[in-house]
Design a protein around this nucleic acid. Structure first.
Ligand code: NAD
Ligand code: NAD
Lengths: 213, 213
DNA sequence: TAGCTAATGTTATTTACTTCACATAATATA
DNA sequence: TATATTATGTGAAGTAAATAACATTAGCTA
């Protein structure tokens, strides 16, 4: 095993492997090969082994991998052997969906603070969370040791909200606004851009039709 | 100009360029250089020119690009010089957010059918759309010439829903359920996986801490 | 109109990622 | 215990993508 820069594509796949392993585990499967994982998630067996090789040797030659063990290893690699508290800004439609989504909890995430600047939204409840004014952010962050923030505000507010989050101590941001954020190097940002994904589909549909002509 | 296989990363960036160009256009900017686009969206100028070069020559040497023209070209390349009707299955929290999202309309997308299998949801209204039973899908698809479907159902229903969508004639699927779908070659699928993005953040936070030790 | 500047389009280079191929090791079998 | 089988881990080969470098062309200036 050598430790080099890990491609982001590898991290993405690890996340997918780990969820697939959880599913196998729930179904009582105890052992699995790279080929089976590959089939299950739609990549090549060599890719699975290469991805894992960045982090160590987890299998047994001639046998395969122990599902429970590999599941734990992948979760550990992803930093999911602990609990993560999150905050979210923008209690709109998407914010509401994210707050009520149980899939995050299942991976060890909890949204511990929801913030908005609209007085008609502040004080409202989403599950057991009360929507708070932006001024409460520092306190919540401190109390719950929050390092990751989610932006679900309109595009025009996103940059300003991101700047404020960083002032409040956020080290990583998941941004749903379709706008490239301008942030200091040391802050990790990832965008979730739904329109882009749709447009990849339309591009491909158009491209295919063109090929058929 | 040569026509080769276009990297998906290029298509992704084109989508982002085109939105950035729309913004410039709204702000009354009429001319732009690859360097300015690059700064605006966070890539290198060479990357911008390389991406465009897959599709033709759109600029003027020594001058740059005409914003309106390049915007139209990029939209055309992405297949957005026309209107796209979509259907969505799963009128839950995420489905509701997607149906009410105005950003899709602004790019030429309309959701023309929302389907669910929960009797308590069927008949309810989301904006001007009524939630329909699954049986209505073929009719809606035919009437509105729909080629793209969105899956916003729980994970366990996603594969079955995808299969049904394809039977109804869908050629492309945007899948929000965190599960790799097993579908015929000719159907374009893209997954939007929010947990994966979060887990890239936790991976990077953990990795950084490790480096600091 | 000649010379200068700016910024594209494109080829060359470098870097990154994936696939291939096989030596290695564990287990099963005779 | 030898042999066959299976599937990992990994270096080498191949492919793809990003970056760099530069030749080309448009417009500006004197
Ligand atoms: N809804 C979707 O399906 C969807 C899809 C793709 C992208 N997005 C993006 O996600 C973001 C949210 O979308 P939405 O549909 O939930 O919007 P929304 O309008 O329903 O909600 C936005 C919320 O942000 C709050 N807000 C506005 N400015 C703020 C500020 N400065 N500080 C704090 N809060 C502020 C508003 O009060 C509102 O509650 C948008 O950027 C949108 O482009 C949404
Ligand atoms: N809500 C989020 O923020 C979020 C985040 C990430 C991923 N997701 C994923 O998106 C999907 C939807 O999430 P949600 O929170 O909106 O769930 P939800 O439970 O609120 O909604 C799901 C809807 O699908 C319907 N449904 C179930 N089975 C169906 C079937 N066989 N045919 C037709 N309709 C069916 C249900 O009746 C329900 O209305 C899930 O796969 C979830 O994992 C959601």
């Amino acid at each position: 095993m050598k430790t080099l820069r890990v491609p982001e594509a590898t991290v993405t796949r690890l996340s997918i492997y780990s969820r697939y392993l959880e599913r196998l585990d729930r179904n009582g499967v105890s052992s699995v090969s790279s080929g089976e994982i590959a089939d299950g998630v739609g990549v090549s067996p060599a890719q699975v082994r290469k991805d894992l090789a960045y982090f160590g040797e987890f299998g047994t030659r001639g046998v395969g991998y122990n599902v429970k063990d590999l599941m734990r290893y992948t979760l550990k690699i992803l930093g999911l052997d602990r609990h993560w508290n999150l905050i979210l800004v923008g209690a709109g439609n998407l914010g509401y969906a994210l707050c009520t989504y149980r899939g995050f909890n299942m991976r060890g995430f909890s949204i511990v603070g929801v913030f908005d600047n609209d007085l008609t939204k502040i004080g409202k409840r989403i599950n057991d969370l009360e929507v708070l004014p932006m001024e409460s952010m520092p306190e919540i962050v401190k109390d719950h040791n929050v390092r990751i923030g989610i932006i679900a505000t309109p595009t025009r507010a996103a940059q300003e909200v991101a700047d404020y989050m960083i002032k409040c101590g956020m080290q990583a941001i998941l941004n749903f606004a379709p706008l490239p954020l301008n942030l200091p190097e040391h802050v990790e940002v990832r965008n979730v851009d739904l329109s882009v994904k749709l447009e990849i589909l339309t591009f491909n549909l158009g491209f295919k039709s063109a090929q058929n002509v």
